[in-house]
Structure formats: C-alpha cells, structure tokens
Amino acid sequence: MNITVIHERKRATEHLSFAGKSVFDLLQQINVSPEAVIVVRNNDVLTENEILNDNDEIQLLSVISGG
C-alpha cells in the first residue's frame, strides 16, 4: 500500500510503498523509535498496533525538544 509520512522534525514529506500492516511496522520500516514520535492520522492519535490503510497520510510529531 502507499503511505504518505509527514515528518515534523525533518520538515519533510515522504511517499512510500509500505508492505507492513501496523503503525509499529511503519516505524520499523522508516527506522524511527516509537519513543521519539506521536503518530497522528486525521488529527487522531494512533497507538503502535493500529492498522494502516492504503493512501493514509501519517503525521509524525517530534517528542524530542529542539533545544
């Protein structure tokens, strides 16, 4: 499936082909620690075992302070 990932920290948008199922799988694929981000879809916070759908737009809010 196709997923769009918006990285708050990198200020970048990534379009990727995703072979997994869950938020946890996505974070593993893009090598992001679940401790370092809040995962949001349509303003809705997702936990790690939430299932993703084709064409989902996922926002990764940075947990880490910038200072």
Binding site: I38, V45, S62, V63, G66, G67
Partner: peptide
C-alpha cells in the same frame, strides 16, 4: 516522560511549532 508531555500538549491543542536549536 517526554512522550507523555508532547501528547498532553497536542491533546490540549497547545501550539507547539517544532524548532530545533
């Protein structure tokens, strides 16, 4: 934790624009 704090700020609707030193 930092994650709990970020989640609290988000759910409360605080405007936090990520800026990195």
């Amino acid at each position: 934790t930092e994650k709990e704090t970020r989640l609290y700020a988000f759910l409360k609707g605080f405007t936090v624009n990520f800026a990195e030193c």
